[in-house]
Amino acid sequence: MSSIRKIQITFDCAEPERVARFWCEVLGYVVPAPPEGFATWDAYERSLPPEQQGAWFSCGDPSGVGPRLYFQRVPEGKVAKNRVHIDVRVGTGLVGAERLATLQAECDRLVALGATCVQVLVADEDNESCIVMQDVEGNEFCLD
């Protein structure tokens, strides 16, 4: 019998710490303590060669249940739609106007943090409402 494995979700980005801190606010995640021997992440970063400073950042679910998110700097910008995206489940169990209002309130909160609202998809006969968004570097995600 196979075992369930923990996963990490990795984002390619230009500014790893900025994107990580955005996702901390979205998901209630936290930045881990800096490496042993360093009082702060800034102190750790200053200890690295210049080309390695700001190269990566991570955050995680404080309960340890959700996946770790890892953000790595890459030289190229985003040019196409994500093939995989995160659904932020803020409307679970809600339907109709109540669901849409809950999604819209979360959308407004995230826009204030730097996200972009791309499209509001209103419920039809087959699907409940959801909102397509982009994070601070244009990575797509949905409020579901």
Results as ranks from 00 to 15, higher is better:
residue 63 S to R: 12
residue 84 V to K: 06
residue 129 S to C: 00
residue 44 Y to R: 03
residue 5 R to G: 15
residue 25 E to S: 07
residue 1 M to S: 15
residue 108 D to Y: 08
residue 73 R to I: 08
residue 74 V to R: 04
residue 82 N to S: 04
residue 50 P to F: 07
residue 130 C to E: 10
residue 98 E to H: 09
residue 8 Q to I: 10
residue 24 C to V: 08
residue 98 E to D: 14
residue 72 Q to N: 12
residue 114 G to R: 03
residue 10 T to S: 10
residue 111 V to A: 01
residue 112 A to G: 11
residue 62 P to S: 03
residue 58 S to K: 11
residue 60 G to L: 04
residue 92 T to W: 14
residue 106 E to Q: 15
residue 53 Q to Y: 10
residue 112 A to Q: 09
residue 91 G to Y: 09
residue 61 D to R: 01
residue 112 A to W: 00
residue 27 L to H: 01
residue 2 S to D: 15
residue 33 A to V: 13
residue 54 G to Q: 04
residue 123 A to H: 02
residue 133 M to C: 04
residue 97 A to I: 01
residue 89 R to K: 15
residue 96 G to H: 06
residue 18 R to T: 05
residue 98 E to T: 10
residue 7 I to P: 10
residue 86 I to Q: 05
residue 66 G to H: 05
residue 33 A to N: 11
residue 46 R to A: 14
residue 124 D to N: 11
residue 125 E to P: 04
residue 117 C to Y: 01
residue 72 Q to F: 08
residue 52 Q to H: 12
residue 58 S to I: 06
residue 131 I to C: 03
residue 45 E to Q: 10
residue 11 F to D: 01
residue 36 E to G: 11
residue 90 V to F: 10
residue 83 R to P: 02
residue 106 E to R: 12
residue 126 D to W: 13
residue 39 A to K: 02
residue 53 Q to H: 08
residue 52 Q to A: 13
residue 9 I to R: 05
residue 144 D to N: 14
residue 83 R to S: 13
residue 125 E to N: 10
residue 121 L to G: 09
residue 104 Q to L: 13
residue 32 P to L: 05
residue 48 L to F: 03
residue 127 N to A: 14
residue 72 Q to E: 14
residue 115 A to Y: 04
residue 45 E to F: 07
residue 17 E to W: 07
residue 112 A to N: 07
residue 29 Y to A: 01
residue 129 S to K: 06
residue 4 I to Y: 13
residue 137 E to C: 10
residue 109 R to K: 09
residue 106 E to G: 11
residue 85 H to T: 04
residue 34 P to Y: 07
residue 144 D to Q: 13
residue 93 G to D: 08
residue 53 Q to C: 12
residue 77 G to H: 03
residue 69 L to C: 09
residue 130 C to M: 14
residue 3 S to F: 14
residue 16 P to D: 01
residue 101 A to N: 09
residue 27 L to F: 06
residue 93 G to T: 04
residue 82 N to I: 00
residue 8 Q to H: 13
residue 44 Y to S: 00
residue 17 E to Q: 08
residue 106 E to W: 11
residue 69 L to H: 06
residue 82 N to Y: 02
residue 77 G to V: 03
residue 12 D to W: 03
residue 55 A to Y: 02
residue 88 V to I: 01
residue 9 I to L: 11
residue 10 T to V: 13
residue 100 L to T: 02
residue 66 G to R: 07
residue 132 V to I: 15
residue 83 R to V: 14
residue 143 L to H: 05
residue 46 R to I: 11
residue 15 E to Q: 11
residue 118 V to Q: 06
residue 101 A to R: 14
residue 101 A to E: 11
residue 14 A to V: 01
residue 83 R to I: 08
residue 63 S to K: 13
residue 28 G to L: 09
residue 81 K to W: 14
residue 91 G to K: 10
residue 61 D to E: 03
residue 6 K to S: 15
residue 86 I to P: 03
residue 61 D to C: 00
residue 135 D to R: 00
residue 27 L to E: 00
residue 92 T to E: 15
